[in-house]
Amino acid sequence: MDIFLQQLVNGLVQGSIYALVALGYTMVYGIIELVNFAHGEVVMVGALVSLSVIQRLADRGLSGWGVIAAGILVSIPACMALGFAIERVAYRPLRRAPRLAPLISAIGVSIALQQLAALIWGRNFLHYPEVVARTPFHLGGAVITEVQLVILATAALLMAGLWFLVQRTRLGRAMRATAQNPAVAGLMGVDVDRIIATTFLIGSALAAVAGTLVGTYYNVGNHTMGFLLGMKAFTAAVLGGIGNLQGAMLGGLLLGVIENLGAGYLGNLTGGVIGSNYSDVLSFLMLVAVLVLRPSGLLGERSAEKV
C-alpha cells in the first residue's frame, strides 16, 4: 500500500510537470490550431537561462526559493522575447498557409534552438545547483519533497490563473473570439495579430516557469532536455483534449500516473514477462483507447469554444 501511494505521488508530480508544459501547447493550439513543436525547446531555453542565473547567485552563497524566483524572473522575459521572435519569423508569415507548413517550420525552429543552445551552453549535462532543501515529508508511508509540493501547487495555480484570464478578462474574451473566428473577431475590433502574439508571450512565460521547475527538480540541464518533455506534454495535451486548459492539466496528471503505475506494476501483473521497459507502450495504448472512445480527448468536446 505504501508503495502504491508512493507510485501515485510520483505519478502526480511527474504529471504536473507534463501539465505545466502542456498548458503552453494548449494555449497556442487553442488560438491558432498550431502544434507549436518548438515549445519543448522554449522550455529548455527557460531552464538553461534560469540555470545561468541561479548558478551565479548560488556561487555567491545565496540559497532558498528566492534564488529560484530570481531565475524565473530573468528567464520569463528571455523566453517571452524568444516566443515573440519565433511567432514573428516562423509562424506569422504562414498563418494562411497550408496547415502542415507551420508544423514544418516549427520543427525547423526546434532543431535550430537545440543547436543554438549547444553553442551557448555547451554539450555537457549541466548540474542544476541545489538551492532548496530536499527535506522529505512523510505522507502516510509515501515520501514527498518540498520541490515536488511546489511543482504540484504551481501547476494548479497556473491552470487556475489561465482559466481566469481566458474566461473572465477582456483579453480572454478577445482570445476566445480570435479562436472561434479570427476574421469576424477582427471585424469586431479585436487586433488579431496582437492577440496571437500575446498568446505566444503567455505560452513562453509558462515555458520559462516550467523549465526552471523541471531543472530544479531533476537537477540537470542540457540542450536536448526539451524534446522528449515536449512530446510527452503534447501527448498529455491531446489526451485531455488539446485546446482545453483543464484538459491539459487532467491529461498531464493522468499520463504521469499511468506511466508510473505502468513502470511499477507491469512486471508484477504479468509475472515478470513484460516489465518497466513496456511502460511507454502502456501509456500509448491507453491514449489510443481514450481517443477511440472520445475522438477529441477527455475534455475535448466541452471546449466547443476553444481555449
Binding site: 507510485q7 531533476y218 540537470v220 536536448t224 503505475l261 512486471g267
Partner: peptide
C-alpha cells in the same frame, strides 16, 4: 533519455 526514475526506484525500494 529519461530523467525521472522514481517509478522503478519505488519498485526497488
Amino acid at each position: 533519455k529519461a530523467t525521472d526514475f522514481q517509478a522503478i526506484l519505488t519498485n526497488i525500494k
